[in-house]
Design a protein around this nucleic acid. Structure first.
Lengths: 200, 200
DNA sequence: AGGCTCATGTAACATGTTACATGATTCC
DNA sequence: GGAATCATGTAACATGTTACATGAGCCT
């Protein structure tokens, strides 16, 4: 499983509390992974016990204190080892595809609204991703980091600092490609469903 | 959850044993849903208890007997009701995307082989889908069913008989679009990774 | 006063994965 | 004789989901 690893990556990109992680999993990380706060708190506790992350209490004004987590050496090593382990290419799970094949035994036309809803959701996500891309990845030259990184971590190899940004962009382009593909396919499905009108 | 519904759809398309279902989940149904035989046996047992499916012992020559399941009226009703319930558009989970973002904190070039492996797996699947499409969906006219369906089931509306085939094809086209998208994206990722060579 | 956001959690349950177990037949 | 396929299952464990719980402060 990779929830732990997704958390490690997110904390390496920026330390934060369980709550903040949960929010990120609704946004940028959520492009390719989802998790609820219950899951995150549970896993985070285990990771703390295993020494993968360090926690530090951060008092705040006007807000409850938070525990800010950051990646410990053991966590960094665990991530590195996972990165070097091959994983099986997963197959997708599409509830909607089950519905589409199931519609043949019910009323195909009744599915049109559902498919249109999904199409709209994918359009919305695409719009959101494109906005994010325009916001974060339009500068022709990556701006020279005005404040250099705190310090090079002691462990492991150190890729150039803009690798982080470039690879985030590559993943975002994947999200964009996925949403575009889905919109196109759902149009195809709608055209197919339309051929089985309500009274045929 | 939709494993039960995926099983119902598969059994409506053709009755079969748990073992046969498990095989189908590695093939056609597996395009959009996966399940191991353990899961299938467990769920199938529950479905039988709930009266969603009927089981019938089929003795075979040279092979162990099998329990052939078929969809009962209650199961058909359950499927129909699920089809009419809206579901949330799911977000994807891509281990590989976690790895790609994680590579920024390790050695990006070390990921190249892994990404190439995945690209190959998607190419293989695409080839397999295209072969299936050529095999099953090339006739310009759907062949007139020589042996008409056993009998119209008593429940629910009855779409035209080629709806099943057409909708299966639409789902397969989705699989094809997905694999093509992934291959294109992984090429993009490879080009990005290549910019962070082993000795930069 | 009521609802929202920030912040962290417990408990129960549903699903999914991995390992193990059995036994017949067919193919090499 | 050994491996693969057909066929069905149990048990233990890991993950993921849903519901519930608490409490401070901010906004209207």
């Amino acid at each position: 499983m990779a929830l732990e690893h997704a958390i490690l990556v997110s904390l390496l990109e920026k330390p934060g509390s369980g709550y903040e992680l949960a929010r990120r999993f609704e946004r940028s990380i959520g492009y390719f992974w989802t998790a609820t706060h219950q899951q995150i708190y549970r896993v985070l506790k285990r990771m703390e016990n295993d020494g993968w992350v360090d926690a530090r209490d951060v008092p705040q004004q006007g807000r409850p204190d938070k525990k800010e987590y950051s990646v410990a050496d053991l966590g960094r090593a665990a991530l590195s080892s996972w990165l070097h382990d091959p994983i099986e290419p997963e197959s997708v799970r599409h509830d909607l595809a089950v519905k589409i094949r199931g519609a043949a035994f019910d009323d195909p036309a009744a599915l049109i609204h559902e498919v249109e809803r999904h199409r709209q959701a994918h359009r919305d996500r695409l719009t959101h991703y494109l906005a994010g891309q325009a916001r974060d990845f339009t500068e022709p030259e990556p701006k020279p980091d005005p404040e250099p990184r705190p310090a090079a971590q002691p462990t492991g190899p150190q890729p150039p600092p803009d690798a982080e940004r470039e690879l985030q962009h590559a993943v975002l382009r994947g999200g964009i490609a996925y949403e575009r593909m889905m919109i196109g396919w759902l149009d195809d499905v709608l055209a197919t469903l339309a051929r089985f009108g309500p009274d045929r």
